[in-house]
Design a protein around this nucleic acid. Structure first.
Lengths: 344, 344
DNA sequence: GGACAAAACAGAAACGTTTTTGTCAAGCCA
DNA sequence: TGGCTTGACAAAAACGTTTCTGTTTTGTCC
């Protein structure tokens, strides 16, 4: 009854008040201002549910976060920063973030979750994270004609809006750095192969090797789940080989920490006997022993970019194919890498 | 028009269909089943916006996350697990989580954010995290008569629903452990004093000292912002004193990592010259050097508890004063602490 | 001054539910 | 058999907006 009251209070019709508040130009500037002032004075807030029903829009943007394990232990903390950036942008525009979680990747359950979000009319737009090489979620969104932005790219015939980090460049950079340091046996401790970022990273790694005419050893490319435990286990499995790698490029700082732990257990001195490079420049990477050489990317800023893109798509100010933001990555040199050991 | 179609399709009235779907008992069991079946068959989904408007309920639970810095870098990754637990419980009940963020603590802006959430009709219930000693948010919720659960306690005259970790016990436990190891100069690297958990932790620390008739030195109780950088800085400021502490109890594993870095810079051997205990049992704590003695608490499980409590409150199956869950904390002994150095 | 356009507002339908109130038939009891 | 209850459904009024379609007033031009 709220807008009714406001209208009565002003001696105007409901429709005029509504149009005044929404900035239509068939209401005089004077009236528009008068309405705005009075609305503020009596503390009028449009009821979001009614607004949604009336306009057919929800003012909500949905995101489904991947929780690696069923206990949620391994939710990637990166997402906090990403979402923080998104919210920073969409909140002032009156949008909210509707977050759900997905305990484990299961195609059927995932489709159901997204279907519910989209068809159920919960959200106006979606943020898709952790993109896979072939990602069915894009089709779901396209079929429902709902705007979306992916964080991470995927293989797709049709254009789509994406924001991503230059994973390929990053791992080319890191691998080249190790090559320049004299390393010839470089292992890649990668993320799950189904994710596109893992493929891009491998591609960067392989390209760096190829540019030095080095043949990659498939046994030195391993995939894990981005956790310390996984990095530890994979690194250990490589160290018992002979010859063992002298350097490890890891998909996350966490994996790098695990790898370093494995090296230490093997009585290898990090930065001299063996080199490790992480990814993410997490807050701890400067404080571990030795400080971790890693690659920085601005997750929060990427989140803001995503937020802005979503708003522009919702307002149809931009086409999906115009949203292609590839964040450059910078390498942060610290102490966990060094020249290849002699006779390595 | 959807329920209209379904009703027509069934030859029933809209109201009967609605009541059948919502399990009212003034519709025969046979009809109820028939409706449910047909609804499923034609893929009927109630429009959440309309449902909200009709029922005056949003089916959403709100949470406003604290982002420590304006860049969102220091969003506590713990919240991912907590929310994951909450969602696990509320999602099957048809509730969604509406998440917002608060860049920096600013009383006015915070109140506005919560007001918007509550008065704006965005959510049915709220989860309040990072409780302060005196927390104005409780009053906001009470005034708006909206159910809420706090994660963490606060000073309040009136009863309220809370889920918390036994912070006092935890730090009593850790301090006692260090005392048993012979330490007499134990520093507390705490979180910001405005948070209730920080006070409880100090209380546990002080109680442990008092039980051994030791007088606490106020200069050894410091407050930081829960990050590695802060732990590093605070620890360093203590190490240049004389006499310096021989042991540090830290508010988070991150702070402990920072403290360890500072100790290492001072050429102290961790676990022999100096002992450090963290809090949280983060995934990395087992893999750092030395592996971190820390305290485990089940954030995900706490989240589930919070979720269940919220549902029960919403259904009025329970009173706020009945929701008092204090999670016990267990100490995970590893290698970052040891006997006090001789002549310490 | 009459025709027309434009500006500014109003009326009413629509959005898709829930919920309150109403109706009707059947069953029960004295 | 008449009045009462009960079971099962229907009608219609909310819920608070947005938006489509009018309507009135004013101004402009020839």
């Amino acid at each position: 009854m709220s807008i009714v009251l406001l209208a009565k209070n002003l001696g105007l019709s409901i429709s005029t008040v509504s149009r005044a508040l929404n900035g239509y130009d068939d209401v005089s500037a004077a009236t528009r201002e008068r309405v705005a002032l009075r609305a503020k004075a009596i503390g009028y807030r449009p009821n979001p549910s009614a607004r949604r029903l009336g306009a057919g829009k929800t003012s909500a943007i949905g995101v489904i976060l991947p929780a690696a394990s069923s206990t949620g232990q391994a939710v990637d903390s990166m997402y906090s920063s990403l979402l923080c950036g998104v919210v920073t942008e969409i909140e002032p525009a009156g949008y909210h973030l509707l977050a759900s979680m997905q305990a484990k990747h299961d195609a059927a359950r995932e489709a159901a979750l997204y279907e519910n979000f989209i068809r159920g009319g919960w959200v106006d737009a979606l943020l898709i994270v952790r993109t896979r090489v072939h990602d069915a979620r894009l089709e779901l969104c396209r079929a429902a004609k709902i705007p979306f932005v992916t964080y991470g790219r995927t293989e797709s015939d049709e254009p789509y809006a994406w924001v991503d980090t230059d994973n390929e460049k990053a791992f080319h950079l890191a691998t080249t750095r190790l090559l320049d340091l004299g390393h010839r046996r470089i292992a890649l401790i990668n993320g799950p192969d189904e994710y596109y970022f893992a493929q891009l990273r491998r591609r960067g790694y392989l390209r760096a090797l190829a540019s030095r005419k080095l043949k990659p050893d498939p046994a030195w490319i391993l995939h894990g789940d981005l956790t310390e435990g996984s990095g530890h286990e994979l690194c250990r499995s490589l160290l018992i080989r002979s010859p063992a790698p002298t350097a490890f490029v890891c998909a996350t700082d966490s994996m790098a920490i695990g790898a370093i732990a494995a090296c230490r257990e093997a009585n290898l001195s990090i930065g001299t006997d063996v080199s490790v490079i992480g990814y993410g420049n997490s807050s701890l990477s400067a404080f571990c022993d030795p400080p971790l050489t890693t690659m920085e990317h601005q997750v929060f800023e990427n989140g803001r970019y995503v937020g802005r893109a979503l708003l522009q798509l919702l307002r149809k100010e931009i086409q999906p194919e115009e949203v292609h933001y590839l964040e450059p990555v910078v390498l942060v040199p610290r102490k966990s890498d060094g020249p290849a050991p002699q006779g390595g």
